[in-house]
Design a protein around this nucleic acid. Structure first.
Lengths: 225, 225
DNA sequence: GTCAAGATTTTTGTATACAATTATGGAATT
DNA sequence: AATTCCATAATTGTATACAAAAATCTTGAC
């Protein structure tokens, strides 16, 4: 692995945790990791502090840094909060969104349609992400947008797996359309409800998510050992 | 200042930032701070990383660590999110709260009554904090409770100043009573609405909060220079 | 063979030394 | 006088050395 400077140590580690390359509960050895990164322990330990504050690591004094993945119930809790944050973003956006942003949102829906037509889940994923980030920002509350963005990033691996479920792309797309329409009509309640339903883990989606989660865990085992 | 170990360096710095002892925009000099704390730069810099991840510091490469206080509009944004998180906690708690926790909540209301009677705002503040943390936990969503707790802590200095406003203690107390009653009745909508109104910055509270904020800033000037 | 106590090794936590970068101040130029 | 450039100083970033704590291994008793 190439030599990296401090800022990217954090990013790289975060990536390794989030993708499951680093298994849950694994202790991060400072010496071997610093050799891998081609740096000393100092920048590594600083990255640990940052990641611990974000909840991705648990630091136990005199014991070390341990990878902390959400278990199934915690992941559901996180989706529960995500749904509420997005619903709130939507409620605010219904009042505050501009024509410009509505046009941007519309563009992502078009792009998503194209991605679905070509069964290109990677492209769909990218445009889906754009859609949601535009919405966060459209709330007009920067703090809320940041919080939503952070949680969104933490849920990334699970959401991505979920989109692989058959028919999910089409369903997601039609939900985006409904959300956008409600936004155009300025119907705050409808936007809020549609977004909560879009994000929330409920009904059949629960099983999909559980399957995604297990798949994620298996992937961990394969890569991590 | 006495010599401190790493964990408490973070806590002490957080306290110094949150109380306004460290002024907004102030650069934290690693050398003088390490002398003040009786430690080397290493544990200090690790604390910086942790605080930056929580949004209390901004780290600019090769420039230093700068204290980052919310400005008035950001603070209002934070209260807006806090209100929504608490409302959600309440909605969930209405379904999930136990008799045990209801009894604990009732105790804090009694204690708050006592504090109001004695005009003891410190005591009121402590019991108020208990009330809210019990509620977060009663949501049955640990992740949500943690998020709410974190934001609650960041808003601490502003909330505390607000309680000094005449009549605010009594008003807050009666709102607690209403929230508890709605919880006992299992009325999720009512709990949610009451909590959102309790926390939100709206109507006359906006002016109170703005006054609090200015008072906080003045306090900063006095201590910091 | 099992367990316990102590020595040894390993690992984390902290201090310091050095490197890289930025800020500062003064001289030279216009 | 203002400005630019360069030398110097100050500060951050990183590596390494040392201290403290925990984990491991060895040895001995039962």
């Amino acid at each position: 692995m190439p030599s990296r400077r401090a800022d990217s140590v954090r990013e790289t580690l975060e990536q390794m945790i989030v993708t499951g390359e680093l298994v849950n509960g694994e202790r991060l050895d400072e010496i071997s990791l610093s050799e891998k990164f081609g740096c000393s322990r100092t920048p590594l330990r600083e990255a640990f502090q940052s990641l611990a504050a974000s909840g991705l690591l648990e630091l136990i004094p005199h014991r070390g840094a341990f990878v902390r993945h959400p278990d199934l119930s915690e992941m559901i809790e996180m989706f529960e909060v995500m749904a509420e944050l997005e619903a709130f973003c939507g409620r605010l956006a219904a009042r505050r969104v501009t024509q410009q942003v509505l046009a941007d949102l519309y563009r992502t829906v078009i792009a998503c349609e194209d991605a679905v037509a070509n069964n290109d889940s990677d492209r769909y994923y990218a445009e889906n992400e754009k859609f949601h980030h535009l919405l966060y920002k459209a709330s007009g509350n920067q703090f809320l947008a940041d919080q939503a963005g952070q949680l969104h990033r933490r849920l990334k691996p699970f959401r991505r797996l979920q989109l692989r479920v058959r028919g999910r792309l089409e369903q997601s797309l039609s939900e985006h359309r409904a959300i956008l329409e409600a936004l155009e009509n300025g119907n705050a309640d409808e936007v809020s409800l549609a977004l909560r339903a879009h994000v929330a883990v409920q009904g059949g989606k629960f099983n999909d998510l559980m399957a995604s989660y297990k798949s994620f865990q298996q992937n961990q085992q394969r890569v991590g050992t």
